[in-house]
Design a protein around this nucleic acid. Structure first.
Lengths: 183, 183
DNA sequence: GTCTATACGCCGATAGAC
DNA sequence: GTCTATCGGCGTATAGAC
């Protein structure tokens, strides 16, 4: 059956990737259709064949986030170290598809894109539920906010002057703090 | 001497406030000169008399943040409850001038405004130093990230669908977590 | 499917009247 | 100090060739 299934065109994925990269690197305002087309190696007309307007490009980006977040939640639920530790560790910017998708969506939420904000809230709630099952309802909040704080700070560094390495030590410190709170 | 000192025109402050409000409510992209002028109750030409270009408007906004952050740091250093507790409590969106200024600057940093990012990093460092003097270097990180996480979440709620009240309970839970970590 | 050419509106900024 | 009028440029989107 391989090769017979309906495969999405490569150009479409290239456009989606380029949009995501630009959102992360130069921000929402500079992620124009011109810039996306150029980075994806297609013309603007070619881009608009796959995504009839910019909103559909945004929608596809958010749908990919939902899919990746769903996969990540499954991994998190089965993590041997526990959901809380997994969450904090994964809150560090590590350039995974999920990380990139999440930060890109953040940029959209920042410009008051309501759909992006709604999806964010939903993902946050699922994370919280999983962490609460691991360390209890009260502590779950502390863990969730710590992870969000890590993301909040990584956002400024994920651009041209990427300096995420320095936060590795912070993660270990947070993990030990979580251990103290658990015991 | 009252009335003889050089006072900045009211229109100038109105413009600055309007810009800040729009950044918070509708995001950076929609905070255009037209929109700012309209909300401030002046014409675009009038606006551009006080701020010759948009960059100068941004600069003035960031300078106000620096001033407010400096004042807040002084209060934080003298807080009877301790710097850590004060920081977490003040990380909740409470619609103070400092809160508004901070979130507005966040919107600018998000679109890769380098100056805004630099000022952010500086303020964060000052906060961290003060908290570290209160609860120690390791725990300071946990506290800082929790506060940032609160801000991170408040950002999505500070718009039209403001729902910040619900996080009041979270703050209390975080404070008790900090107490446990301190002891 | 992908391209070029073009329409059109909005944004930032200038000129100049009052 | 504040206004109106206007310009150039860019960003989104459409039309239509290939």
């Amino acid at each position: 059956m391989i090769g017979t299934m309906a495969r999405k065109p490569v150009a479409r994925d290239a456009v989606l990737d380029a949009f995501e990269e630009l959102l992360i690197d130069v921000g929402e305002r500079a992620a124009t259709l011109d810039a996306v087309a150029k980075r994806a190696g297609v013309s603007k007309g070619g881009l608009l064949y796959h995504f009839p307007n910019k909103e559909s490009l945004i929608t596809a980006t958010l749908e990919r986030l939902d899919r990746l977040a769903g996969e990540d939640l499954a991994v998190m639920a089965a993590a041997p170290e526990g959901a809380a530790a997994y969450f904090i560790r994964s809150s560090l910017w590590s350039d995974t598809p999920m990380d990139r998708s999440f930060v890109a969506a953040t940029r959209l939420a920042e410009v008051a894109h309501e759909d992006a904000r709604r999806r964010f809230a939903a993902i946050q709630q699922q994370w919280l539920d999983l962490i609460a099952a691991d360390v209890g309802k009260t502590m779950a909040k502390a863990v969730l906010y710590m992870g969000d704080g890590l993301y909040f700070n990584a956002m400024w560094e994920s651009g041209p002057s990427g300096n995420a390495d320095g936060r590795q030590g912070d993660v270990e410190e947070l993990l030990s703090a979580v251990e103290r709170l658990r015991g």
